[in-house]
């Protein structure tokens, strides 16, 4: 596996086709936990971690189902395995690092319902990536999610201090800001070559 290909997959997943701003995946946590910079960063790292774990699981399931000739079971097994993987990871962290567990808090179980995780499993299967490529893709997608979340949190912290008309406050404003961020990320399109 040559290095060029892997670095392209990473840049593609994190910047050019950013999961949040280009594919609209994981919008719920993106709008929900982007209130403060500190929680946004923690959430980002939790997502990267779960993405790596579920990407590994999804690769295994896909190979197994191919052997069993049962592709129609793919979606059901993905969602079940991701949900159990998150649960396992949660128990594991709770046992071995209570400090980290407290820091992540409610965000860890919430990751199960993050559509970016399921989409990652579906995309890597559709693209037919090898195992190493899957891991790099998961890392790239996670980093991209974190970048978007942290940028958004930074902007929203500043917006709290600004004077805003009543009508615009809340979700409408957050979505407009996300639109402008999405426009900015279109600038990365040239990187793909």
């Amino acid at each position: 596996m040559d290095f060029d290909n892997l670095s392209f997959i990473f840049i593609n997943a994190s910047l050019i086709n950013n999961f949040v701003l280009a594919y609209f995946l994981g919008i719920c946590p993106f709008l929900g936990v982007s209130g403060s910079l500190a929680t946004a960063t923690r959430m980002g790292f939790a997502v990267i971690f779960v993405m790596l774990v579920s990407s590994t699981c999804a690769y295994g399931i896909h190979s197994l189902l191919l052997m069993l000739h049962a592709p129609y079971l793919e979606l059901i097994s993905f969602i079940v395995v991701i949900a159990s993987a998150v649960q396992l990871v949660e128990m594991f962290i709770k046992k071995f690092s209570p400090a980290l567990f407290r820091a992540l808090g409610i965000f860890l179980p919430l990751i199960t319902t993050n559509c970016a995780i399921l989409a990652l499993a579906l995309f890597q299967t559709a693209k037919g990536y090898s195992f190493i490529e899957c891991l790099v893709f998961a890392l790239g997608a996670g980093v991209g999610f974190t970048i978007a979340l942290v940028l958004m949190a930074g902007i929203r912290e500043k917006l709290d201090l600004a004077e805003i008309p009543d009508t615009v406050k809340g979700t409408a404003l957050a979505i407009m800001v996300a639109g402008i961020l999405s426009l900015t990320f279109m600038g990365f399109a040239g990187l793909g070559g």
């Binding site: 280009a22 609209f24 009508t167 409408a172 404003l173 979505i175 639109g179 402008i180 999405s182 279109m186």
Partner: peptide, 22 residues
């Protein structure tokens, strides 16, 4: 029809409904 437009359109609809409700 690009991603940014999706955000702007939804934002605009939400603004309109907020305004009507207010």
């Amino acid at each position: 029809i690009l991603p940014g437009g999706g955000f702007f359109t939804l934002g605009a609809w939400l603004l309109l409904f907020n305004y009507l409700r207010k």
